[in-house]
Simulated assay, not measured.
Amino acid sequence: MNELITLGILAFTSFFTLINPLGVMPIFMTMSADLTPQDRARTAKKASLVGFIIIVAFALSGQLLFKFFGISVNSFRIVGGVIFFIMGMDMLQARLTKVKLKDSEVKKYVNDISITPMAIPMIAGPGAITNAIVLMEDAGGMVGAAVLIAALALVVLLTYFILLSSSRIIKALGETGNNVLMRLMGLIVMVIAVEFFFSGLKPILIDIMH
């Protein structure tokens, strides 16, 4: 019983740190600033659900898939870094909030950002996926796996509610404040992108040299 409690606490704290819903929120705010509260809520819900499904899928079959396709987590980090960098560049130039959507385009836009970059790689990023695979290996059976998935579900639920609260923050900041925040977050996201890219590239280069 103590081992399951320890696993649950470890899973919750590690997933909360790696998913970092408080860090995801400003990016979600800037990308959904022109959406209605209903569309913003729908985007948050879909992103959270898709992110949860992806992490669980990798937790259950990650080792098998990685071996089958010859994919490494480091390659995943490099791709995530490229996506982050492009997104950060757009945010730095305040492009994201300048997108004015027609009613017919809203549904497509919601679907686009809820999958990429919100679900992948913001929620279901390389860190969270790797963590899920490693912890699932250590779960030691069905009960441990259930505890792990329950802890992940709690983190994703918290992420969903944090994203929902972003609408109030957008209203409080106004357009100028939102643009300033977006540029600041753009710099941070680009720094994260560089860290992701080189943390994935370094082990690959070391393997090549050896």
Rank of each mutant, 00 (worst) to 15 (best):
D90S: 08
M89I: 09
K67H: 14
I9Q: 09
A94R: 13
I53S: 10
K202G: 04
L101K: 07
F15Y: 04
L163N: 08
F198A: 02
F85R: 10
K98D: 08
L173C: 05
D207Q: 12
A119Y: 06
R42W: 02
F16Q: 00
L154G: 11
V79T: 14
V79N: 06
I188W: 00
S114C: 10
F197N: 00
R95W: 05
V50T: 14
V147Q: 13
I27A: 04
K107G: 06
G186S: 02
S199L: 13
T159A: 14
L96R: 03
N111E: 14
S199V: 08
V191C: 13
L205M: 07
Y109R: 12
P21N: 05
I19D: 04
E195C: 07
L152P: 03
A145T: 07
R40N: 14
T13S: 01
F28Y: 05
F85W: 10
V110H: 13
T159R: 00
I113N: 07
T6L: 12
F28T: 13
D112K: 05
N178K: 01
F12K: 02
A128F: 06
I192K: 06
V110W: 09
F76W: 08
K67E: 11
I170W: 11
I204F: 08
M29H: 05
R168H: 13
I78F: 06
F197G: 03
G127D: 05
L135Y: 03
A139M: 07
S32N: 10
L64K: 10
F197R: 00
N111C: 01
I115F: 14
P21L: 08
M122Q: 01
L22A: 09
F76S: 04
G8I: 03
D34E: 11
T13R: 03
A124I: 15
A47D: 06
F76A: 03
E3C: 05
